[in-house]
Design a protein around this nucleic acid. Sequence first.
DNA 1: TACTAATCGAGACGGTACGTCGCGTCTTACG
DNA 2: CGTAAGACGCGACGTACCGTCTCGATTAGTA
Lengths: 200, 200, 200, 200
Amino acid sequence: MPQGSNASRRSESSRRAILAATEELCRESGYRRLTIEAIAARAGVGKTTIYRWWPSKGAVVLELLDEAAVVGTAPPDTGDLAADLRSLLTEVIELSTPQDSAPGVGLVAEALQDPELGRELRERLIEPRIATFKQRLRRAQDTGELSPDADLDVALDLLYGPLYHRLALHLGMPDRAHLDALITHVLRALTPPPEHPPTP
Amino acid sequence: MPQGSNASRRSESSRRAILAATEELCRESGYRRLTIEAIAARAGVGKTTIYRWWPSKGAVVLELLDEAAVVGTAPPDTGDLAADLRSLLTEVIELSTPQDSAPGVGLVAEALQDPELGRELRERLIEPRIATFKQRLRRAQDTGELSPDADLDVALDLLYGPLYHRLALHLGMPDRAHLDALITHVLRALTPPPEHPPTP
Amino acid sequence: MPQGSNASRRSESSRRAILAATEELCRESGYRRLTIEAIAARAGVGKTTIYRWWPSKGAVVLELLDEAAVVGTAPPDTGDLAADLRSLLTEVIELSTPQDSAPGVGLVAEALQDPELGRELRERLIEPRIATFKQRLRRAQDTGELSPDADLDVALDLLYGPLYHRLALHLGMPDRAHLDALITHVLRALTPPPEHPPTP
Amino acid sequence: MPQGSNASRRSESSRRAILAATEELCRESGYRRLTIEAIAARAGVGKTTIYRWWPSKGAVVLELLDEAAVVGTAPPDTGDLAADLRSLLTEVIELSTPQDSAPGVGLVAEALQDPELGRELRERLIEPRIATFKQRLRRAQDTGELSPDADLDVALDLLYGPLYHRLALHLGMPDRAHLDALITHVLRALTPPPEHPPTP
DNA sequence: TACTAATCGAGACGGTACGTCGCGTCTTACG
DNA sequence: CGTAAGACGCGACGTACCGTCTCGATTAGTA
């Protein structure tokens, strides 16, 4: 593909330096104290260069997380549905755990107040994971593990909801036992007792 | 409570003016653009007076919401458990709906990044509602509507979780049908099929 | 006049620090490289404090020169008109000589491009000196040294003009001999050969 | 001049576009707001092209004025010395009058602070005019209109000085009457009353 | 006529300073 | 004393231009 003259003049090395500096500073002082000014200084880059390519510090952090995330587009499928769901949920839990938390939580907090950032966050980080999640559940429907008319959006709310609930309220992420309890409850609710369908 | 001579010389009229100004400004420009500086100006109050009594703008807004909320400490009990749960959840949904959302959502966002504010938010706004919620569920256990060993913390996660989930992801609050689906699912999961207990 | 409550809250110590820093920086690096940012840093003062009280760096420098100038409002009068004029002109020449030149020349340069600054410069620094100059010439008219209908504005142009001429063209200030030549010429032109008046 | 193969590959059309853009922008927004960046944009030219051929915006403007000026190298000589001087002075006055003033005044202002630009300005714009001026005066000495030992440098100062004086002080250029008064005075001072020479 | 190197347009880049905003503290005068 | 008013030191903001630096794409003189 001869994209030739269409090539952006953007400096890849600056881009990398900016993301690296962002990651360092976030780790050192947290999302809150993160500053475009400081990123530029640490990265050895003009502020302009940051503003040229990102609209806000949130967008920089978003790209950082986006790069960091190894997106396995195919859902895990060990044959054990509960285990697979647990591993999907665990990925999110780990993104919200202290040492790495700064960028993730800060980003969610900022996105709450900034619709445009929220949209980006949803499109680039969240929706792919939702898709993966639903893909796994759909497969479970195919194998008859789940009721074929189970409402997958409800399942999504029920399984991911608690994580955000606890995040927002500083309640600490659910431990292994609690997580298993959640999954068990939800699967039970979605598993077809043949005679009455889940939603009236 | 004979606090007598100990009575604070704090000016109640300033306090009210501050909260009123906060409410107006929040409504006009949103939590994000809210500023201690602007509150003081609008309220005709010195900045010192605000800083003397509140540690941050979040704390002011928290007090505003705290005053606004009519906390029915006793849970609703119409005899219809699903309906009662729906009305409890609806209160929170309304706090997160556009016109009034600014203070509520902004506060949650800020609390995500400010542990102290998070603690205050939890203690003064959240926990009373959690208590009310659990109280109603416990009554349902007493009447046999719910399994006596149902895990109420899990129920809490399952019912409130989705709201925060959707809040954080700008997904829009669940509509009436979805909400009912949620409640139905959760109640089904908590209702005892006598042979296997909810947690393994 | 008990101006009491009317007293400005302005910090005199900051004002002095700002002027001192300005003077130092001007001496060290010249008017051109002088920067509000640097003044603030050197003075240990917020930039806001400078912008609050002065509209531009030119205004700060103007105030600096204004304070530095010992304005003898009464003109010198040794009885020797030429000598008195020479001493008046010398004051201006010294303000435009290298070591002290930075502020003075820079200010004139900036005022050339900034009408508001030009007005201030004129009112606060220039016009008092013009008044003094004219006062001395008027006294010379009283004593008959000068023609009573000599045009003092023309005299002003003729005597001060060359200084600005040379300043603008980097020609160097007139030396003692040239200055005396100038004064001699001008006085001769203003001294009445009784029959024909100076202006037609 | 066999510069032959050495011929510059410089683009004349770019040069003209740059000068034209400079002239327009100067007229529209004044020398002060003039910017290399803006010149390049308006001229449809890369910034590099400007920096390759001129060291500063002052140099561009200088070239602009240099081209615009129709330098009559031979002084006017109508036989009426006062009239000839007036027409020489008028050329400078017009260069400093509002509509065209921007480039001229700005250039002088900048040159005050930039010795290199000052030198260029002097050599290319000023000195030719001084030469012309002196040439005319010398001719007047030949015809006996002026004292043969009149100091032409003093004459220069006395006649051009007031213009810069007024320019620097935003005093407005001398009107016709004042200009005539100046010329009259100066000529009187330089005309030989046979018994006492002009300088003591 | 084709080659080849200087020049061109475009504009990203690392910087410096700008002028503004809001912070949280401090100072002053009043009630 | 608490208060209204607001100046203060500070830090970050987002912008404007600077002068330098790649990038192909002309383009003009030479081979």
